[in-house]
């Protein structure tokens, strides 16, 4: 069984589960309505059922291609946890900081935090890069384009 097949089996089951959950949630929380005046639940329910069916199809197809038992499969999908965690953390930091802390701190966060995902980056060059990019961001967005983004933290404006 190849990595792809294992992944397809797992993903198919996951999608089927999600589809089922969506269908049940939609049918129980939203009005289904009539054929003439459909309620908000009709379309999501149909979509959920469709997803469940497609997910099962994918999983069954993958299972059929399977010869080796699951436990024997050794190879893994390479997941870059460090990159994923740091890049996402940078974006989240920007989203949380932009309102209360202003553009400058938010940009510093989204440049510096993810930079360490790449081991080629060293502290000093990153600080220089962060400063240059902050200057660029301030020059382009609030000054050149007149985008109403506060630059400084609340209370210092």
């Amino acid at each position: 069984m190849s990595v792809d097949d294992r992944a397809d089996l797992a993903a198919g089951l996951l999608v089927a589960l999600l589809g089922g959950a969506v269908a049940i949630y939609a049918a129980s929380s939203y009005d289904l309505g009539t054929l003439r005046r459909m309620g908000p639940g009709m379309f999501p329910m149909g979509l959920g059922v469709l997803m469940a069916a497609l997910g099962l199809m994918l999983a069954l197809g993958a299972a059929r291609r399977t010869r080796a038992p699951l436990a024997l499969a050794r190879d893994r999908i390479g997941v870059e946890f460090r990159s994923a965690a740091l890049a996402t953390a940078g974006v989240i930091a920007f989203g949380l900081l932009i309102r209360p802390a202003g553009l400058i701190l938010a940009v510093l966060a989204v440049v510096i935090i993810p930079a360490f995902a790449d081991r080629k980056n060293r502290l000093l060059p990153i600080m220089v890069l962060a400063m240059v990019l902050t200057g660029l961001a301030v020059a382009i967005f609030p000054w050149l384009l007149g985008l109403p983004i506060p630059l400084l933290p609340m209370g210092m404006r």
């Binding site: 974006v91 989203g95 932009i98 993810p114 990019l133 967005f141």
Partner: peptide, 30 residues
């Protein structure tokens, strides 16, 4: 690329924020 990608992330964040002036949208990007 190790210098380019932080810049790309910065533009993604500011760009997203600028559409609705919404920090929430940036969290959705994550």
């Amino acid at each position: 690329y190790h210098w380019l990608f932080p810049a790309v992330l910065m533009f993604i964040c500011i760009g997203t924020y600028s559409v609705n002036a919404s920090g929430f949208d940036v969290l959705m990007v994550a």
